[in-house]
Amino acid sequence: MKTVYKLLILLFPVFLYTSCQKDTYSPNLAVGLWKQVSVTEDGVPMTLTPEQDTCELLVDENGAYRCYHQSFKSYNNGNGPTSFYGTWSVLDGTWINFTTDKWQLIAQLTSDSDKVVLAYKKDINNNTVIDTLNSVQKQWSQYHEQSRFTILQLSNSVMEIRLKTFVGEKKYALLFAPSPSDFIELKPAPAGKLIYIPKLVTDQNYWIIQNELKTLKTYIFKFKKETY
């Protein structure tokens, strides 16, 4: 009996030492090629377009990652960009950070009638039409920012991550493959600038977008590991 007590006393601190270790994920598990298999919004599976369905992440050991999708492939006569990049890191073995391109709404309203300020031009028939290229560039401001996801699962085969963010922040960002209907092609492409930008803001959608930028939802992205 005395020996049993001695053993219990011996095992007690070992138990204490190991039981206090939190379940955390090693950054090494995130490295590799991941294919996006589903995205949910507040628990409801999102319907993804074929372009979004192609989304893959190539996560490298050096803290850089690349993302593939075909959301803008139809641009530039079918030669649009398909590969995008950013940085990643794991924080406290619990969160995973990805930096992505995002766009901030800076569209202005006229002071007298609360109409969205747009640029206009003359078409070939001398009719006044909206100058989309000039307008959108004054309505959206691009920035590159970190999004912090909670790791729900991270193993050799599955990565499931959760992000609580505003609907508009998810839609008008490369998180990870945006819907083609939320972006437009900048044509002709401005020199040295991206050829894609969120859609034109008009009187019809201004308040819808403003509302999207104030509505919080939870997104869960699920990826499965691919071999290459």
Partner: peptide, 15 residues
């Protein structure tokens, strides 16, 4: 050279 990868600045994000 980080994480077993050679990073050449002009090639980034590829390593």
């Amino acid at each position: 050279y980080t994480g077993g990868l050679l990073n050449i600045a002009i090639d980034l994000p590829a390593s």
